[in-house]
Write a protein that binds this DNA or RNA. Structure first.
Lengths: 346, 346
DNA sequence: TAATTTAATTGAAACGTTTCGATTAAAGAA
DNA sequence: TTCTTTAATCGAAACGTTTCAATTAAATTA
């Protein structure tokens, strides 16, 4: 078992002090060019690389970023947050950070629910994705750790966020449907307490109003506890089991619910998009494989993760960094479930 | 900015030496019960927790596990390896480890392609998922690091692996089709250099032979470079553009290719399962949403990751641990694309 | 030439643990 | 009582860096 190579070995071989070598590996100024070149050469030759834990101890930094998800978000079948996570992983590499992932309960009650990476001071900053209890945000602020929220926000808290342009997304959807002649447009929202869902719902109402289309409460289902496929199924059942006039189009706050809605309609023999047009939001994989293929709004999930990491790294390197709110753009993806062709003119 | 609480604070408050406190936090023997109780109380009261980097430096361990994927596996749309990764994440938490993920090129040529966590001695063991160049395995062995391979193996190398029971999976598929009356059974394999695909292919041939069904080379497509949806599409085109007799069933080496195959058949007006039965392997989400729903073989992806972590942790704690090869079970999931009902008798 | 500034290098402390040989106190054996 | 063993605790070194004040040497100014 060959011994690990340490900075001491490099210093010795170079005939210099350890501190000079350290200055060089961290490429700090005030080192003679020739010395630097020579030491770099030796480092390469010896295959030296500073050990993370020693570095961390001395400089009180870990080189890690904590990524926190609530348990229910993590275990969700649809990999919405997974994609965000992978985006952070990818970007983190560019900044020489690693991501430590963990899940937590909805609120922080007990001290021994705190993720180990926080207790062990093993992260330099934290990213939280999705709706979460404010107590977590408070806790992380107390630890003086830089923090970014993805796809969530807390109005009362001073915290940087990365989100997506929900309002524009729904606006594009509604206007597209209207252009296709639809004026009876329903909405399936699920859990409208989630800020993104709430924004989508608000934008639905605003855009209808702005277009002079009346809002019919019987065509709106926003009471469900969650935003999963089965919630969409139940919501559709509610809307389409009513007597009276039916909507000719339904805007769903996400693709999962749109798929659930389609499932119900298919089972009851309603033609899509013939009888009812369906539109989703998020552009998940499954929307591509369903029949008819789902018209939806694309969200740059990986990119959201990437941006969050960039912001966080700025905050880590410059503790004075300013508060930011970043919105990533979205775009309408017209497929078959809405029955309206992509507009050439406009 | 309140100072971090260190072991020294605990020792002072308890009127004991630092070493005794350390013995307690690592619950080592030879400590008086009363002392232990008292110190634990103080630790709780102070909210003390050992800092990872200090611990790591002193004990020469990181508390991290490295997870390596090749770039192409990582960027693959279908989250096969993502699921495995999440499985490792989940299990790692139970053992107080964190996973550091990275991607690498196919082979290790250049020293500066080595993942940072290896250079920095920042992992206690490594998991590699999927096909990868042998040079990586060699490199990790040189570093004396415990290693587990998931869904891959290298016959010439002494390394523990976690895989799935590919042979049984395909056997179940073929026998199911045969029970449904099929005797003209094709196979789409894609990249048969991948050991799992190769096993599936071999099992296809073996099971046909064992069942007295003849193997028709025109119905077999195994030349493709990869195993993605488009490879399945192309493979189907090859098989069904031939003159002469056609198969009545096609076994696909994974779901992605099965979906590609279905796409081609639908486009050319072939009825599924009426004219041709299709079966996949892997049980990916998308198979549930396609019409008809895909019959497939379920693979416990998260569990494979979990088992790999358990094995690896054993190796980390006990360097003398023996070489293991673990196969996870698979099961046939009968849905609609095969046109054969689940057998009640047998 | 002497005094001052600047650039390069260094020694030593600090970071917070673990670990191991040494020490002390208590218990048991002779 | 004295010697030996065992249990509990401790002191100090070690882990491999970074960082900062101090030193030395060289360059510049007076």
């Amino acid at each position: 078992m060959k011994r690990k190579i340490t900075i001491r070995d490099v210093a010795k071989k170079a005939g210099l002090s350890v501190s000079t070598v350290s200055l060089i590996t961290n490429n700090k100024p005030n080192v003679n060019d020739e010395t630097r070149r020579k030491v770099l050469e030796i480092i390469k030759q010896l295959g030296y690389h500073a050990q993370r834990s020693a570095r961390g101890l001395a400089s009180q930094s870990s080189g890690n970023i904590g990524f926190i998800l609530t348990e229910d978000h993590f275990s969700q079948a649809e990999p919405f947050y997974t994609k965000i996570f992978l985006g952070t992983e990818f970007e983190a590499r560019n900044h020489n950070f690693y991501i430590l992932l963990t899940t937590v309960g909805w609120t922080l009650k007990d001290h021994n629910q705190v993720p180990r990476f926080l207790l062990e001071h093993n992260v330099d900053g934290v990213i939280i994705a999705g709706k979460i209890g404010a107590s977590w945000v408070d806790y992380i602020h107390e630890q003086n750790l830089p923090l970014i929220l993805i796809d969530y926000e807390l109005p009362r808290h001073r915290v940087s966020t990365v989100g997506m342009d929900n309002r524009t997304g729904i606006k594009l959807v509604v206007e597209h449907l209207r252009r296709g002649g639809h004026t009876k447009i329903g909405f399936i929202g699920g859990d409208v307490h989630h800020p993104s869902i709430a924004e989508r719902f608000a934008s639905y109402r605003d855009t209808l109003s702005a277009g002079g289309i009346s809002i019919v409460n019987q065509w709106i289902a926003v009471g469900e506890a969650n935003t999963s496929l089965s919630d969409g199924y139940e919501a559709a059942k509610k809307i389409f089991s009513m007597n009276g006039e039916r909507p000719t189009a339904v805007v769903c706050a996400n693709d999962a619910m749109a798929l659930g809605c389609m499932k119900f309609l298919k089972e009851t023999g309603v033609a899509i998009p013939g009888d009812v047009a369906i539109v989703g939001f998020d552009n998940i994989e499954a929307g591509l494989h369903v029949e008819p293929r789902l018209t939806t709004v694309n969200v740059h999930r990986e990119e959201m993760g990437g941006i969050a990491v960039r912001r966080l790294v700025e905050m880590i390197k410059d503790q004075s960094a300013v508060l930011t709110k970043t919105l990533t753009p979205v775009e309408l993806i017209v497929r078959d479930s809405c029955g309206v062709k992509e507009d050439v003119s406009d």
